[in-house]
Design a binder for these strands. Structure first.
Lengths: 259, 259
DNA sequence: TATATATAGTGTATAATATACACTAACTGC
DNA sequence: GCAGTTAGTGTATATTATACACTATATATA
């Protein structure tokens, strides 16, 4: 919170010459930047953080909310699991970088993608100063299955409720994302991104139950969802198992969603 | 949305040699970065965006929601108004950078500060690639008055409802912030940051009315706020004008806020 | 073809919350 | 003491959330 506020204070704070020097260096750098900006000089000579995007890919698998992690093969945090990410290229937008990452890891395109938060504390990556813009993606279970078992052993899906030790500040990022997802469930139609085009009301209810991590009342759930008009009956039914078949619905994005 | 997705596709998309070259360049850069990351090489030789923080400072002035803008003195957008911001130093956190900006522009410390969103489209700043982490700050009207009229003509407070033409994508940023603020009013105690320590219920109601830009029912408003227990009666009264004095309340951050 | 089994699908009563609305209280200045 | 001005209060109604148990319809198999 207040870590660096003294570096812009009066300077008369009893800290020794080492910090003093650093403060002066920083002040000069700032003055030069202001100068450069004001007169349109070349700002490229100034040292700057790396910018990366991390993408937290979430999907419902095995009646569980799971995320994709990759195992780090080198220092720092070697052998630990981490949220996949990569550098932002000079001529791609942040979102494009996130989509690239998504494409590389899952082969999936056109999924729900939302910017989550930007983490940039100095020291969060011991190699260099890194500012990471984190996105999260919601992948529908069906399309994903295809590529699921395709490759390497150092990529894996993990339940958000049983995560291994994570690299960097990634556990905090996941907590933050889960929070955001839970909140948005209540007042947006975000949940539909985790289901295929056609789904039953029970399947939709399961999405809510898995993410909110609690049981919901069947009748009240159906009443509430149907009253919003976001669902369209497809006329089709899903028959599976030895019991009454369920109606298949489709999400209607046009409808007013007063969820 | 899809601007750059072709640069990572099959490449066989009928685009001419110019884009082709760019694609190849980008692919090579990516491969090198991956290599560098995997083997802990020096990543510093790669070109990277500038990182800045912009701080949208909001306060209630003249029964209006106003923000602080600065007038640009040079290309690009010379003469237009912009949200104040500056470069992030290598050894300061994003939040520390935001606080520094806040301190420089208003002299105020210890205010509500929240990260809003990160904007990083290539081309949003014609000088160079800039990734901007935007924060917004809520300043209480009372403390601010002191420094209000202090200096230059190229800094000014503007009503969010009557803004001049803004530089860069700053109008969009303000819309986004206003939205966030309005939502948070409903389920957090964020509003108290715009008021001094002691305030009347009418003053609190005005905060809501000005930000939501609509009238609220007095009795229902008071009922709702008081039922949450976030307010403490100070015992004092505020006498101003020729009418019954109003009770002064204080915000109790300890209380459950089931706003 | 009757029955067991498993999930789909439905309604009502009660509690909690949100809304609409008008008068009395308490101070100041004249 | 009266005019002017804002503070402060309660009740009836509508809307929304919750709690709760039985019938419907398919498949499998005896």
């Amino acid at each position: 919170m207040e870590e660096h506020s003294e570096t812009i204070g009066s300077g008369n704070n009893g800290i020794g010459s080492l910090e003093e020097t650093q403060e002066i260096r920083q002040r000069r750098a700032l003055a030069e930047l202001a100068e450069a900006e004001a007169h349109h000089y070349d700002v490229n000579k100034y040292e700057r953080p790396s910018v990366t995007v991390d993408v937290l890919m979430m999907s419902l698998r095995q009646r569980d909310l799971q995320i994709l992690l990759i195992k780090r093969r080198s220092w720092p945090y070697e052998g630990m699991w981490a949220i996949p990410g990569g550098f932002v290229m000079m001529n791609e937008s942040l979102e494009a970088a996130a989509k690239r990452e998504l494409q590389e890891e899952t082969g999936v395109q056109d999924v729900y993608l939302e910017q989550l938060y930007t983490f940039g504390d100095p020291g969060r990556d011991p190699r260099t100063r890194v500012v990471t813009v984190v996105y999260f993606a919601l992948l529908d279970s069906e399309r994903l299955q295809v590529r699921a078992a395709s490759d390497a052993t150092d990529v894996g899906w993990f339940s958000v409720y049983e995560l291994p030790q994570l690299a960097f500040d990634h556990q905090g990022i996941i907590d933050y994302a889960l929070n955001r997802l839970r909140n948005k469930l209540e007042y947006t139609t975000i949940a539909f991104n985790l289901l295929p085009d056609h789904f039953t009301l029970r399947e939709l209810q399961s999405v809510y139950e898995i993410i909110l991590h609690k049981r919901l009342d069947k009748r009240n759930f159906r009443k509430k969802i149907l009253s919003t008009n976001v669902l369209e009956d497809t006329g089709e039914k899903k028959m599976e198992g030895t019991h009454r078949p369920a109606r298949l619905y489709r999400f209607n994005p046009e409808a007013e969603h007063k969820l």
